[in-house]
Design a protein around this nucleic acid. Structure first.
Lengths: 234, 234
DNA sequence: AAGTGGTCTAGACCACAAA
DNA sequence: TTGTGGTCTAGACCACTTG
């Protein structure tokens, strides 16, 4: 393994593990050259890569700082619900329908990907654009990974935004489906039974440790996911 | 603009414009240092970036070669329909329902994003997984951008795969929606009227020049898009 | 004014794959 | 065996921003 690859992974680990939370100033280039006993070019290359990847921000004279994970990847972008509603020119609010802490049932354990039973937080939340329901959120949080979530009511900040601000993650998976609204969904979104809905299921891990699984259900024709990209950006 | 940024964009342009098609060997590092009158470190940095971005492949002793655009970005991956069907363990075939060349109507012009009327190819195609319809493809191709498409029947290679192999692109946009099946879609996919479908609309450009717009419609519950990613990969 | 990052140089040695 | 890319060094000068 090359030196700059080692430096890169070591810094990446500190950021993704939360040891260096967003806002932290990481060591100056000259400190890293001393620490790793290498030339400045080597650490500079690494920091430039991290900056290109969006993990850190570099400011002349001030230093390099850990960035807050800007919810990226285009497809993911969409999931800042509040920003999305406001972009439509409509007022946003959310409403917690259910927030219950309990020992995981087997089905929940499997959905989250837990190896053994544990405490989970089950949340149901409706997001509104103006007077109309915009999205139904059903979420499980692994309390072993995020114990402080148990003390939250999520009435001021919705669960998604709350988690993104606090919990570092290293991997995510989206599953996107079209589904027919069942009774519950139809009632929650004020739409007809059986109408088409867009469902996004998102799971998040930090170093193989499941954090949360969330299902977002949107009324079908009123919502679309948009993703733009160029071939040079994998 | 820094020197390495200039070198990067110049090489990128040659690749994306098709001047250097996939498989082309790009100049050796020592040739580029001569051309740009700079040190080897500078061009090496650029080529490393291009390799990381997946635009080129580097082989010791052999040189650096333009890669074929591996349809990436996870969400896009899914759209190699044949690979997807085969991954399900089912035989794949496709069937061209319509393939007509004509002058664009105004609605088509707008969908494609053409500034003025022009020749377009309108294709309707069904993709099968075993005996069952798997996906309905409705496509417009801008013949000004891809004149050779007019001579194709697309009976051996479906239009999507044909285009990817031949036409370089610099930008793409996906819109993902849940829709209710209308008469046409229901008939084409052998499903009930009004059932939920997943619709992916994809537009592709090469340097602001529209190439194609395609709408892929899948029976809802039988299909899902999966995207995985990590925060360090924008 | 001082210290940071941004860029670049002109070398060097090594690993690897092709001839 | 040879020539390519992969990595690294020990400098250098500049631009910018903060104090």
């Amino acid at each position: 393994m090359s030196l700059h690859a080692r430096i890169l992974t070591e810094i990446e680990e500190r950021i993704l593990s939360g040891e260096w939370p967003p806002g932290t100033r990481i060591p100056f280039e000259h400190e890293l050259t001393a620490q790793y006993q290498c030339s400045r070019m080597t650490v500079s290359k690494v920091l430039t890569q991290l900056a290109n990847a969006g993990l850190i921000e570099r400011r002349r004279k001030a230093g390099s700082f850990v960035k807050r994970p800007h919810s990226q990847s285009a497809v993911l972008d969409i999931h800042d619900l509040e920003a999305e509603v406001l972009a439509l020119g409509l007022p946003y609010r959310h409403e917690i329908t259910l927030c219950s802490k309990r020992r995981s049932m087997r089905a929940e354990q499997e959905r989250l990907g837990l190896a053994s039973p544990g405490e989970v937080l089950h949340i149901v939340c409706r997001h509104f654009a103006g007077p109309r329901p915009f999205c139904l959120e059903r979420r499980l949080i692994n309390l072993a990974a995020v114990p402080e979530a148990a003390e939250e009511s999520f009435t001021t900040v919705p669960p998604g935004a709350w988690l993104i601000e606090r919990v570092p993650w290293s991997a995510a998976e989206h599953k996107i489906r079209a589904t027919a609204a069942d009774d519950d969904v139809a009632a929650a979104l004020s739409i007809a039974d059986g109408s088409a809905c867009l469902t996004i299921e998102r799971r998040t891990w930090n170093a193989d440790n499941p954090i949360t699984i969330v299902t977002l259900t949107y009324p079908g024709n009123e919502h679309e996911l948009v993703a733009r990209f160029t071939p040079s950006q994998g």
